[in-house]
Design a protein around this nucleic acid. Structure first.
Lengths: 231, 231
DNA sequence: CGACCATTTGATATGGATCAAGCGATGTGG
DNA sequence: CCACATCGCTTGATCCATATCAAATGGTCG
């Protein structure tokens, strides 16, 4: 836990706007965001630091350079829904409304390209390629959420198997996957408890479809077996 | 059950493209879709007729003139997730990808303005207002799904209360709401069984927050009580 | 009127939550 | 360098909300 994290926990309203002043912007940078060439600033966020909060103005969007991010919402009683995990190359925080619907936190120490939303929208006014790209990013996010919705009607081992498959597709290095997120994050993403996630994992491991050499790393042995478990 | 429905159940691949030939296009029509002026055709769909199927080319989008529509996906074992309900004035079937992710069916007999997707996108190339409108429609849908995701971590009475509130906001006529959908549709939307939906409804009715003079109609007596139930 | 179908209500079963304890990796201080 | 505290995770025991199975009700339509 670093200074930033302590600051955040004592004052939940702290946002990227404040964190921004404490982290040093590293590089002023020209970068491609897919087809979009735009100016952004790469910033560093320590693990568990808030990047933006639900309800805050959606003035920026974010592209992960390194690290990992979770977006989430919490109910008053503390139940948390993790909406998604974002990995290097992924873009998050893109909203069409004026405010963010979810909060976002770095999972591990991360470097993130912060892009001015208003400037991009202004550009979209004249550049139809930018406009189309923004639209398709929103569409991709919509599709991801639609798929996730379907996941939530499955049973526990099916949800966990689906999660492993998704992660394998996104970040496997010859079938080996390093998970950046904790069991709690996974549980809150899948709508389960950590105990149920843990039990499902051992259950799946016992089928031989995957193997966990360590808690945060797994090796995919039989993709089709996992696909069968998936539903 | 009419002829169309029977045809559909015997051949699940039947799509709007075929239904289109059987239903009579009613009016060739110039219509506003929000800020978008565009040409579309109003078509009639009988209750339970498929409008489009998951995986079919997303060549059209749809604006409801009258009636109601559900979008849904099914798992191989028959479990169904109803993604959303669409009511007069609502637009559905807008995708950024080439194919529909969900299927869509008329809930009741419906009149629907069918709009050529390609033509609209072509228009968006030159008209930035059209482009922006398409984007914000996708964004609105994304936001709706994000909210629905949060609903799915709540317990049964909370989900049902949230559903009643949403419907009341959308189609109440001085606090009275006529529901177009069955208990099964509601259950599959909320990730519950019809029995649990039914029990939750009677439980909520017993608090006095709402009253059901008939099965498909309810009167909202105490919105804040419902809000409290909601979480 | 009678059949049918959607819905409600009741009884029981069960998957996952909750509560509780154990374990292993990591880090810390003596 | 080892004893020990801590933390994240696993495993075990029990409970409970919701699913499932079954029956009753009531509205609708021929």
């Amino acid at each position: 836990m670093n200074q930033l994290t302590l600051a955040r926990s004592s004052d939940p309203s702290v946002s990227v706007l404040r964190s921004r002043n404490r982290n040093q912007p590293s590089i002023k940078n020209l970068e491609f965001v897919g087809a979009i060439q735009c100016i952004g600033t790469v910033m560093s966020f320590a693990a568990d630091v808030e990047i933006y909060g639900e309800g805050e103005p959606a003035d920026y969007l974010y592209k992960i350079v390194s690290g990992a991010v979770r977006t989430y919402r919490v109910l008053i009683d503390g139940r948390r829904q993790v909406g998604g995990f974002y990995l290097p190359g992924d873009i998050f925080g893109l909203e069409t409304g004026a405010e963010h619907n979810f909060s976002a936190e770095a999972i591990t120490d991360s470097k993130i390209l912060v892009i001015n939303h208003g400037a991009l929208v202004a550009r979209a006014r004249t550049d139809q390629e930018v406009a189309f790209h923004l639209w398709s990013l929103t569409g991709r996010e919509l599709r991801r959420l639609q798929d996730h919705l379907l996941l939530l009607i499955k049973n526990a081992p099916e949800r966990v198997a689906a999660f492993l498959l998704t992660m394998a597709e996104r970040i496997s290095v010859d079938n080996s996957v390093e998970l950046p997120m904790s069991r709690r994050d996974i549980a809150d993403h899948l709508g389960l408890t950590i105990e149920t996630v843990s039990r499902s994992l051992t259950q799946i491991e016992n089928t031989g479809a995957v193997e966990f050499p360590s808690r945060r790393r797994f090796v995919l042995h039989d993709r089709s077996a996992l696909n069968r478990l998936n539903s």
